[in-house]
Design a protein around this nucleic acid. Structure first.
Lengths: 152, 152
DNA sequence: CAAATAACCAAGTAAACAAGTCAGGTATAA
DNA sequence: TTATACCTGACTTGTTTACTTGGTTATTTG
């Protein structure tokens, strides 16, 4: 799993759809305008998201994309995985080209970390993320509320 | 913070030094041979590691690099940070170019994640990582020991 | 039916970055 | 003084990212 702008774009777009899904399908043109992402680039990303069964499409006027399943069933990790297409081909896959033990050991350290990230992102559903966002939006004028958001 | 091969190389090299530091300074040529990393590339990385005060150098024959401080005082995050030089210039830094609230909110989601990663890697010292590695090396023939290392 | 809409699709491109190379330095121990 | 090993900067190469171009196909609306 990689964490690039690509994944951010995908999550942002899914956010947008989740926020507007009660108004029917959301067109990529709308998302492009609201979120400032190139339309043609969105098309590429949604081709992948559709391939993973995260969204479904409706063609023609009034059409667009809508969530294929409930937003509480979609994990942030699913969205990122869909557009990243990285099988994370690590250097010493399965003790293949290990020159000694040390290489393997740091490899394991690395993999355990990426597992942590994955499980964290897998535990957050799109619904949770959006509702968290709403809470923050509402309480943005209050203090003592930023416990999960403090930044180094 | 980025997680690339660059960071892996740096951690691997620091591993190597930590494992051999009782034999005096470790030359980059040795690390290069043992870990299969290009010597000239290692030189670039160690220039950065030295700049951060993680290692100190000894020139001349028999010279090399040694840890500037104890391995228990060096966090894995320090090593990665040293070679990554990424201030993580996020798109909407400080609500600068936010078109609406949504962009900002996903940005926060992202930043809270990268904070999680950072705090995790900050909590693991080089000493801990190396000793974990040793435990695994020793017990590599036993079952029921992989609790922290299970892979998806 | 025609025209507008919007999803689909394939290929190409400019810039950035990673990884590694090359060619020289300078300090120090033997 | 010579070999060692750090030190430095510029350069190459390959990959990826973000984005563009130029279409085709399906569907609704007037």
């Amino acid at each position: 799993m990689k964490l690039s702008t690509r994944g951010r774009y995908a999550v942002t777009a899914m956010f947008d759809i989740a926020l507007h899904h009660d108004e029917g399908p959301v067109s990529l043109a709308d998302i492009s305008e609201r979120q400032g992402i190139s339309l043609a680039y969105l098309e590429q990303l949604f081709s992948l998201l559709r391939g993973r069964g995260l969204v479904k499409s409706t063609r023609g006027p009034g059409g667009g994309y809508s969530l294929a399943v409930g937003s509480e069933e979609i994990a942030i990790a699913d969205v990122i995985d869909a557009v990243d297409e990285s099988l994370d081909a690590t250097r010493c896959g399965g003790s293949a080209d290990c020159q000694n033990h040390h290489r393997c050991l740091t490899h394991d350290l690395w993999e355990s970390l990426s597992d942590q990230i994955r499980s964290h992102l897998s535990s957050i559903s799109l619904a949770q993320a959006v509702s968290n966002a709403h809470v923050l939006e509402v309480s943005s004028r209050q203090e003592h509320r930023m416990s999960r958001m403090e930044v180094v």
